[in-house]
Design a protein around this nucleic acid. Structure first.
Length: 303
DNA sequence: CGGTGGCTGGGG
DNA sequence: CCCCAGCCACCG
């Protein structure tokens, strides 16, 4: 009860302080935001929630759990032209659009890594099509493309992930991202992805403890997933993939060694999350491709 | 913000 | 083989 009252007070405070920064419905978006929304949301938004629109992705945020629920992004090879992750591109930033925003120091000493939902490597490219790319040393070179990278490093694109057993080199999350970057995008040229974390019990979840002791309220998902959709440019047919990772803390607790073994039907992720991916697909096609892992289509990228 | 260090897979 | 790339952490 006390918790509920505190929460209510907090909510009222937040609403009063930040009236302009609620997540938005489509009709509230500016023309520029709609352009990015239309790019990143493919075949329908996975739920009817309000969202935040960034240059490189669109996401839903859970203000109570202080983590993104899901992030959707479109990627083409040019976006892999990401600046070196140094200096201004290195730091994790606070998201100015979020009340009570998470800051990078919230994670310090917690034992959890700051894991990107939308990976750093897709934040590049000449997205404003002005022929200029952002520059590590020159802030005036292309502020727009700079902003795209900064947004990807904001804490609203971050959730706590175990470095050793998930997010770092050798972890399945890292392994999948590497295949997407080095194999899928160069070969397929264009993908749409949706990434998310799952907090199975919203009434009882672990949270990030700053320096092992101070609670931050940041929820630690017990599962993470990545959903991919590809459209064949000739036949116009679609292919989907879904990967579901348990959030374990030690590598030996991982159930599988091979990234492909984490594949599940898209339907399975929908069952766990309550989301409906790509609902604007033709129903017959959607049923067919979301009920199977489609491993045969994807396994070539994991050789 | 620069410097250093851990980890691991992949490439020369 | 070693070194680098791409995940990060931590320190002053």
């Amino acid at each position: 009860m006390k918790r509920l009252i505190l929460l209510t007070i907090k909510t009222l405070l937040i609403l009063g302080m930040y009236p302009c920064h609620a997540q938005s419905s489509y009709q509230d978006l500016s023309a520029q935001e709609r352009k990015y929304y239309d790019e990143h949301i493919y075949m329908g938004q996975p739920d009817d929630s309000k969202v935040f629109v960034k240059n490189a992705f669109v996401f839903r945020y859970n203000h109570e759990q202080r983590i993104p629920v899901w992030s959707a992004y479109h990627v083409v090879p040019d976006y892999l032209n990401t600046p070196s992750r140094k200096k201004k591109y290195k730091k994790f930033r606070k998201d100015p659009e979020i009340p009570n925003a998470v800051v990078t120091s919230d994670y310090t000493g917690s034992g959890y890594a700051r894991g990107h939902y939308v990976p750093y490597f897709v934040l590049g490219g000449d997205r404003d099509k002005d022929g200029i790319y952002s520059d590590l040393y020159d802030d005036s070179k292309d502020p727009q493309d700079d902003q795209t990278v900064f947004e990807g490093n904001m804490m609203t694109n971050i959730a706590p992930q175990d470095h050793n057993a998930l997010n770092g080199a050798g972890g399945p999350w890292y392994a999948l991202e590497t295949k997407i970057r080095t194999k899928m995008i160069p070969k397929l040229k264009e993908l749409h992805l949706i990434v998310g974390g799952i907090v199975s019990d919203p009434d009882n979840y672990e949270q990030v403890m700053h320096r092992q002791s101070k609670p931050t309220g940041i929820a630690i998902p017990d599962k993470f997933y990545q959903v991919i959709i590809y459209q064949d440019p000739i036949s116009k047919e679609h292919m989907t993939a879904a990967f579901l990772f348990p959030h374990v803390r030690e590598r030996y607790e991982l159930p599988y060694q091979e990234t492909l073994d984490y594949m599940v039907p898209v339907d399975s992720v929908e069952l766990l999350t309550g989301l409906n991916f790509f609902h604007e697909l033709d129903d017959t096609e959607e049923d067919a491709i979301e009920s199977e892992t489609n491993r045969g289509f994807w396994e070539g990228f994991f050789e």
